[in-house]
Design a protein around this nucleic acid. Structure first.
Length: 594
RNA sequence: GCGCCCUUCGUCUAUCGGUUAGGACGGCAGCCUUUCACGUUGCAAAGACGGGUUCGACUCCCGUAGGGCGCGCCA
């Protein structure tokens, strides 16, 4: 092995090789992996097992020589100028965008031996997040975006954003806005402008025509009614529900008049389609189970599977990371790539997130837009951390920064089984993040979320610079006790309360059980304090407690009731200090004389 | 129905053919303590089932059961 190549290879991430099927050297022989630690070694071995069960087989089928020929053809195609062509795409709601087409990068076929030619494969990773704007950004989509983002960052590549809005009936601008907002809130920035898939319909139509020219697609004149009948019949006969191929080989000259045809992909009927998936391993789908899907509707608009392939190709996407619900689509899309002679991107289908009951996420559970999580008072960093641990792991690491996530995020850390959404764990994590966020930063998060939570606007209007100072001062005590920003906000109520304070049930009880008298006892002590600081007040009150033969709790609880109107709060001496001498004494006096 | 996939404590997961199967959340009990928290100590808690392969299986293979996803002129 040439030292130059080895150096190149060890310096990069295995997972971004398109050639994830290539056989690897046995560990003992693999001098390129000298310096790895145990963990890296384990992972590498796992990876080998996962995606290369019969790599030898593959290699036989496509020797290196063929791969090189492929590569050269690619190079020629680039040189011929096609790579320089640019499409400008206008879009309502999003800004225009230029996409390099069709080969912005250079990739190799999936099945050759990578180690020999890896010098050619320095193409950067390009991932994409491709939501359809038919609703908000739900939690599963958010995680998909997170994974795409993390992987792009990890590899120094790019994450593109494409809005899959070819369904004109269901796509809405409001949804586009919600999705972009959600991504921004989560801190998942994308590279370049968001691309409208619908705006590229012309290009998709061209490819459909090209497919016809290549004999890989055909016109189908079946009406929706006929298809419905076909489906009903198949169901009645307990056969598989698929298109029966009526027009696959029929002469278009025999087409009925007045029917706008659709274009169907001429899918291979024999053999099997293989998806080499980084999470799922090698998935084999029998071609007989994949029918001739419609790629262009009778109204001339493209359908999803065509658009995705064309866009991913044109946008230079090297790595597709999406939910497993797209696995069968991956097979169909693979067939389209192959029919066009395009390289199939690396694919990773991540397991789904279920509700706490194991069933599909419902609105009750977690199928909420990410904005709902903002409203519930979760910190973006906490949500990122939580989401990262759903379906992905890095050993036993539970709490890690986004920077660490980026550093650690490898595709082979992704699992295969579905996970359940667990609010309790999210809460716990969120509490951790709240406690560990510096006060000033936390205050900014708090203020920023106020417009989104109940009663938050009123409170916001009461916050001036002076109040901000108080909040900041109270924050160390408050944040220790809050799991969400909402709780944090609620626990700060005593700072905003006007005298006379409303008392809750427990507070009333405390005062009734001798609290009033206790207050009358400490009041003079506090009044006499020369320095209104938590430290000095605590000392003074302790002296008083000892003198009076009282446990500190017997004084602290009544003080808490009087000062906050509740039975729980931060340390009572901190409360006294933050509230200030005048307000504190007044509140205590209110209750002591009552 | 057909195809594909999954199955380790209640939940998220580690394990990668040899471990007393580890961690985290949640639960329970103790400690700390001015309340509530935080923190801390400890406890309970798992390889779906049945066959194989192997000296040895949670790990590999087959089957069963359960679950998920897909099967649109939706994405």
């Amino acid at each position: 092995m040439c030292p130059h190549l080895r150096q190149h290879e060890t310096g990069r991430n295995d997972a971004d090789e398109p050639d994830h099927q290539a056989p690897r050297l046995a560990p003992e022989q693999d001098s390129g992996h000298h310096n790895e630690n145990d963990r890296q070694r384990q992972r590498r071995l796992a990876r080998q097992r996962k995606v290369a069960p019969d790599a030898t087989h593959q290699q036989e089928r496509r020797p290196d020589r063929e791969a090189v020929a492929f590569l050269l053809a690619d190079l020629r195609q680039q040189a011929s100028g096609t790579a320089q062509k640019r499409h400008t795409i206008p879009f309502d709601g999003l800004r225009p965008c230029a996409i390099r087409a069709p080969h912005g990068h250079l990739r190799l076929p999936l099945t050759h031996h990578a180690t020999r030619i890896s010098a050619f494969m320095s193409s950067p990773v390009v991932t994409r997040f491709a939501p359809s704007p038919t609703g908000f950004l739900h939690i599963g989509g958010a995680r998909t975006a997170l994974f795409n983002w993390a992987y792009a960052k990890h590899t120094g590549g790019k994450m593109l954003l494409r809005i899959e809005d070819t369904d004109r009936e269901r796509s809405t601008d409001a949804a586009v806005t919600a999705i972009l907002d959600g991504l921004r809130w989560l801190g998942l920035n994308w590279d370049g402008e968001a691309v409208s898939q619908f705006a590229r319909a012309g290009r998709h139509r061209d490819v459909a025509q090209e497919l016809i020219k290549r004999g890989k697609a055909y016109f189908c004149y079946c009406t929706p009614e006929e298809l419905e009948a076909m489906r009903a019949k198949a169901e009645a006969e307990k056969r598989q529900i698929r298109y029966d191929g009526t027009w696959r080989d029929r002469d278009p000259a025999t087409a009925p008049a007045g029917v706008n045809p659709v274009i169907r992909f001429r899918a291979p009927q024999e053999g099997e389609t293989v998806i080499n998936d980084h999470a799922q391993g090698r998935v084999v789908i029998p071609n007989k189970d994949l029918d001739d899907l419609i790629i262009l509707r009778s109204d001339g608009n493209p359908t999803y599977n065509l658009s995705v392939v064309v866009d991913d190709h044109d946008m230079g996407v090297t790595h597709i990371i999406r939910g497993v619900d797209h696995l069968t689509n991956a097979a169909r899309q693979t067939q389209i790539y192959l029919a066009m002679g395009w390289d199939v991107p690396s694919m990773t289908h991540v397991p789904l997130i279920h509700g706490p009951d194991g069933a599909k996420l419902s609105k009750r559970h977690g199928a909420l837009g990410v904005e709902a999580y903002r409203e519930m008072g979760y910190l973006p960093a906490a949500l990122r951390n939580y989401l990262a641990r759903l379906g992905w792991s890095h050993g036993d690491d539970e709490i890690f920064s986004t920077g660490q996530l980026v550093e650690w995020f490898e595709l082979d850390g992704i699992g295969k089984s579905a996970s359940r959404f667990d609010f309790a764990k999210l809460e716990n994590l969120n509490g951790h993040y709240i406690r560990h966020t510096p006060d000033a930063e936390l205050l900014a998060h708090w203020l920023a979320v106020l417009p989104y939570i109940e009663g938050g606007s009123d409170r916001l209007s009461q916050i001036d610079e002076q109040m901000k100072g108080k909040l900041l001062k109270a924050l160390p005590g408050l944040k220790e006790r809050a799991k969400t920003l909402k709780e944090l906000n609620a626990s700060a109520a005593y700072l905003f309360a006007q005298r006379p304070l409303p008392l809750d049930e427990k507070a009333r009880q405390i005062l009734a059980d001798g609290g009033t008298q206790a207050l009358a006892g400490v009041l003079p002590v506090l009044k006499a304090a020369t320095n209104w600081s938590a430290h000095d007040l605590e000392a003074a009150v302790k002296v008083h407690a000892e003198a009076a033969g009282l446990k500190l709790g017997k004084l602290a609880q009544p003080l808490r009731a009087a000062l906050t109107g509740t039975s729980t709060s931060p340390g009572i001496f901190d409360v006294l200090e933050v509230l200030g001498r005048e307000e504190s004494l007044a509140r205590i006096a209110d209750q002591a004389s009552a």
